[in-house]
Design a protein around this nucleic acid. Structure first.
Lengths: 95, 95
DNA sequence: AGAACATTATGTTATATTACGAAATGACGG
DNA sequence: CCGTCATTTCGTAATATAACATAATGTTCT
């Protein structure tokens, strides 16, 4: 018999929610390929305002997917773990 | 140099979006544990209306995560692939 | 065929997310 | 210490998602 406990999986839900946006998923993929990037590089590549990219980065950071490091005037981001992509490939191949 | 192509990853984004809701993630986990369940079992366990559960199931189905099978009056759902959880565990352990 | 049951589809309202401009923060160079 | 640069924070308006009531569909039972 099934039992649903409200709020029991919010930590995991936040990870999926964070990856469930095209810009954020793209950011994570760029970090998978190249270790680290600064905020300004993302802003240059994606046609949205600085504040918007910054907000996306903070959502990814809050979910524990990326971490930041300030060096001089710039902030660099890198992945905490890239293992999610192994699973994603599997899902994508399935259909 | 980074290049962002709009709409290039929508298929994958939909998988994450689908899993980014507490009820839907819970449903997927139940199917991971026990192969298959009918819609009515989910409705009984979660305190929301039938139509709401049905809508969640259709989102998971549209993302390719689960599939349905009608037998008699009932519809049974099962996972297409459970590999996403391997990756999730890894992410969760990280912090 | 008609009633009862399990589920899905549709339309609507409440709530959450997104993107933005503008203001605030904080490091660096003059 | 002041201005500039890189970024974050805040408030707000537009858009998307969620949950629901109700109607529609399809299956079984009589």
């Amino acid at each position: 018999m099934l039992v649903y406990e409200k709020n029991s999986n919010s930590y995991e839900v936040n990870i999926f929610k964070a990856l469930g946006h095209p810009i954020r998923l793209w950011i994570v993929k760029q970090l998978e390929d190249e270790q680290e990037h600064c905020v300004c590089e993302f802003v240059e590549a994606v046609d949205v305002k600085f504040a918007t990219i910054s907000q996306h980065l903070s959502i990814l950071k809050a979910a524990g997917i990326i971490r930041d490091e300030k060096r001089g005037k710039r902030v660099f981001y890198r992945l905490n773990c890239s293992c999610i992509f192994t699973a994603l490939e599997c899902l994508v191949k399935k259909d």
